[in-house]
Design a protein around this nucleic acid. Structure first.
Lengths: 263, 263
DNA sequence: ATGTCTTTGTGAACGCGTGCACAAAGATTG
DNA sequence: CAATCTTTGTGCACGCGTTCACAAAGACAT
């Protein structure tokens, strides 16, 4: 007592670090695969390898959930699947709405990974009247006007935004006002939400840019290595600068990119 | 000297922290928007608000790039756009291939954010012969057989995998063998790659599961609060346990989820 | 029952990232 | 030119996350 209540613990929910929570789905997937192969138990070493993480990290992660392993043996696969599912809240059904049924929205609607893990697509919503009634992934698209009613009637608390950037904030506001408290945002915009609402962002463009950075660095290091090998005592800087001239500024960047297009 | 060369600095490239690199695209987007509105300068405070970060963090981030600001004034928008673009390697053209042209692949191909930032979709590749020649986003889809030739002919170093999970590792291996050194993976699998190859993963299902966790926690706290208010001295645990019974284990989780379907 | 061997769970050290708070720098005004 | 005011750049402290390394726990064999 007298511990929490400080307005928002956020980062450290109940004692489970955020970083650990982010890895639980990873473990769950690996465990599910093992379960299908009817493997009864796994060691932290094996499971860590399957999930692509360090075994010590995995053990510490699990230690936050409790002591579910048996020393000398490992972890019971089925039991662990259940424990993690429960911890993540996947033992209950989560109705989800997807707003913005363009290519990406359609891809999400068809995504098998949703239904399999306790998520159920309750509705597809789009602002285009021409889309209304059109079935996508077996579900008829509904018009934005219905948004509030849909949220309330289905008790939806998780919303996915796949609209163009321009519409995202507006859609977000309506979702929140209607009672949604968790949002997965695919539009390239910073969403402003009231306290108590969680937002996670997935930005395709950003991921690519990060890759480009490392890619450039690799190329730069190679060039630098060549220069070094060539005994160049001058400013190795030139090797990098020589790469290209280019003018990113004046070639007209489109800035507020239209998210992922609607059809 | 005698500093680097330790096999792989990875986390801290040249002195720019990984966390900073991940935010640069964010700043770039905000700056581009300002540039379009012909705003000449911004303060760290304003820009930080637009990017949704702390202003001190932003200033520290920029300090890694150099001293590009003017005290008492702020940052020159155009200049900063150029500097960040250059640092991220966006002043050069990055040919990219997308493998797996299902709904998601198509969405990516149509994504405006790519072309606008130095990325150019060099080719769309799919294993389905029926897709071959079919234009998606104005680009004809090519068969997987052509993969190696495409990579080499276009000098592609960045590949995007949007195939089902089962095909991902195989595609990955071929991409890497053909010369790709950066991969953006949308398939729900852990990819194994040789040293020197960067992989970034985007997993829609995982993001949702993380949201579900926090959502459950919110619900649990509300319930706990109610219990506390009701002066229940017994085990508050029951409030949480009462939520639902459910059996995630035996309702047949599909484990190795087929990524994002191929049409 | 005792010993050996495997594997967990965790204490402790370390490093990275974040945010505060302030001094230095420069613009601006009188 | 001097004073004031704004805003940057950064030293510093703190906390989270990662990793090592090992003691405790339990299975298994003899």
């Amino acid at each position: 007592m007298a511990t929490g209540r400080t307005h928002r613990p956020a980062t450290r929910s109940r004692g489970i670090p955020e970083a650990t929570v982010a890895r639980l789905p990873l473990y769950l997937r690996a465990l599910t695969a093992l379960s299908e192969r009817s493997v009864p138990t796994v060691s932290s070493e094996e499971l860590a390898a399957a999930a692509g993480v360090n075994s010590a990290k995995l053990r510490k992660d699990f230690s936050y959930l409790g002591s579910y392993g048996t020393r000398g043996v490992g972890y019971d696969v089925e039991y662990l699947v259940y424990q993690i599912s429960r911890e993540l809240g996947l033992t209950q059904d989560w109705p989800v709405v997807i707003v913005g049924i363009g290519n990406l929205g359609a891809a999400l609607a068809n995504y098998g990974g949703f239904a399999s893990r306790g998520f159920r697509v309750a509705a597809l919503i789009d602002a285009d009247p021409a889309m209304a009634g059109k079935p996508v992934a077996g579900i008829p698209v509904q018009h934005t006007d219905e948004l509030e009613a849909i949220i309330r009637d289905n008790g939806v608390s998780i919303g996915v935004i796949a609209t163009p950037a321009g519409a995202a904030q507006q859609v977000c506001d309506r979702l929140v006002a209607a009672g949604v408290t968790s949002i997965l945002n695919f539009a390239p915009t910073v969403l402003t939400v009231p306290d108590g609402v969680d937002v996670r962002k997935v930005d395709l463009s950003i991921e690519l840019q990060i890759l480009a950075f490392h890619e450039q660095r690799k190329a730069g290091e190679e060039a630098a290595a060549e220069v070094t090998a060539a005994q160049a005592v001058g400013t190795a800087q030139t090797a990098v600068a020589a790469g290209r001239e280019g003018s990113a500024t004046d070639q007209g960047p489109d800035g507020d990119v239209p998210a992922v297009m609607p059809a």
